[in-house]
Design a binder for these strands. Sequence first.
DNA 1: CGATTTGTTCGGTCTACTCCGAACAAACGA
DNA 2: TCGTTTGTTCGGAGTAGACCGAACAAATCG
Lengths: 168, 168
Amino acid sequence: MSEEPRAVARERVIESMEQSAEVYGLSRSAGRIYGVLYFSEEPRSIPELVDETGYAKSTISNVTRTLARIGLIRRRSSEGGGRRVQYTAEREIWFILQDVFQQYVQRELQTTLRTIQRAEAQLPDDSGAETERIEELRETYEDLQEIVALASDFTVGELRDALESYDR
Amino acid sequence: MSEEPRAVARERVIESMEQSAEVYGLSRSAGRIYGVLYFSEEPRSIPELVDETGYAKSTISNVTRTLARIGLIRRRSSEGGGRRVQYTAEREIWFILQDVFQQYVQRELQTTLRTIQRAEAQLPDDSGAETERIEELRETYEDLQEIVALASDFTVGELRDALESYDR
DNA sequence: CGATTTGTTCGGTCTACTCCGAACAAACGA
DNA sequence: TCGTTTGTTCGGAGTAGACCGAACAAATCG
């Protein structure tokens, strides 16, 4: 069996994905399911994922929905007759990150920024320390928002190049 | 009482910080404690934080330890006689983010990358699909690591400028 | 039309975390 | 020295989330 080292290597990487999933606020099962799909040549249905991961059908159903919503996997409805739903992994990690930046990070920054701006607007002009603190905060958030907006339009290579070639 | 609008504005921003704390994997109490310290002119002791936040002493004690470890607040042991421990907020958000990048994101990327590299090394040269997938993954992680390493050496302004002025 | 396969939904259990209050330790002040 | 203040640690209550199995809906196949 010369397949074994491959299986071992794959398992290691998938375990690492489980761990990463937790860091990014997802469940371990999400990491494993993504990992299995990442290495699958063919799209996988829910029963197949049940076999390959050991998780219950209901878990697979729920987690795939979440993963699809976030954009880590894609749902291909019924290829070739059967009513089976098929899932594929999005393998371009950078695309995923761009999505996360645009959908979540940007949104989070945006709402925070709006709250800060509203608070600032309600304040009389001479309100001492509070005004200063809030102003400072707003400026930082404006910078961050701009940076994320710009970065999420770059490819990985461009981003790396932009940082490497920048001369202070 | 012309202080009220200031108190309201401050409260709004602190509530927003509570929410952000949850997003970043901290507790709501951590957000509020940081918020109160963020707006405090003077350093605050644990009993003072108990008064101003309404949380139990033990909660303040535990959360301040966590916040100090991460670098969001600083611990000044006993200024002016008393044995009181004093806390101040680190107000430069970008410094905090740089710390987080270097301490946590970099580390997480590093360990993942090492796992990938080890898996790749154990694989025979001709192992088909697995090799290709793992190689692809490794390259992405190398890029990401490089980007984070570079970015965490920039100031906010430099980073923004680098992205804005990059010409594709 | 049943029987089977697939996918979703719905309680339920288990675990982890947040926060609290009480007990404790350490240092100071009278 | 004894009482008081401050900070940490510990056990427990309440809560949220992960995952499971069972019940259910929908579609296909004989």
